[in-house]
């Protein structure tokens, strides 16, 4: 089956529990996601939503898996660019594995179609978001506190 996938891996010097907290605390998320807010109660089957700093809804979806402190999966669709919305649902998986003093965080974002523009668009954002998360969790300070949400988000 045709598929577009990006995989991002980063090693963060922390514990799976602390990283899980950073990934799922909706008050904390904007600090590493360049101001982007997450709205969800993390109930499996429940809604999930990303809101840009200007109040626009960037992406919506559903919580597919929620297994602290190891696995978080989201159904994900862009909402504000028609050509991206038309591509339909993508799948975003966060996996946390302890490795020595660090935690290996793997983000796999995929969509069952060739040459996805959504996957292209988010691929610009993920490295920066994850790099920011790593810096924030390891040092307590975000590298880039806030940017225009569009550069971080598809």
């Amino acid at each position: 089956m045709a598929e577009s996938t990006f995989i991002y891996v980063t090693y963060i010097r922390t514990t799976p529990e602390k990283l899980w907290q950073a990934l799922t605390d909706t008050d904390f998320i904007p600090q590493w996601w360049m101001g982007v807010r997450t709205e969800t109660d993390w109930r499996v089957g429940g809604p999930w939503k990303l809101v840009l700093t200007d109040g626009r809804t960037a992406d919506t979806g559903e919580v597919l898996e929620f297994e602290p402190p190891r696995r978080l999966a989201l159904k994900w669709r862009n909402e504000f660019k028609p050509e991206l919305k038309a591509e339909g649902w993508s799948h975003c998986l966060f996996e946390l594995e302890p490795q020595g003093e660090a935690v290996k965080l793997t983000v796999t974002h995929s969509i069952p179609r060739d040459a996805s523009q959504l996957i292209q668009a988010v691929s610009g954002g993920w490295p920066q978001i994850l790099s920011n998360l790593k810096t924030l969790v390891e040092t307590g300070k975000p590298l880039i506190p806030q940017r225009a949400a569009e550069t971080a988000q598809a």
Binding site: T5, I7, W126, P127, L130, S131
Partner: peptide, 9 residues
């Protein structure tokens, strides 16, 4: 897969 995160760092 190419993992660009270390290059970003």
């Amino acid at each position: 897969y190419l993992n660009p995160v270390p290059i970003q760092g």
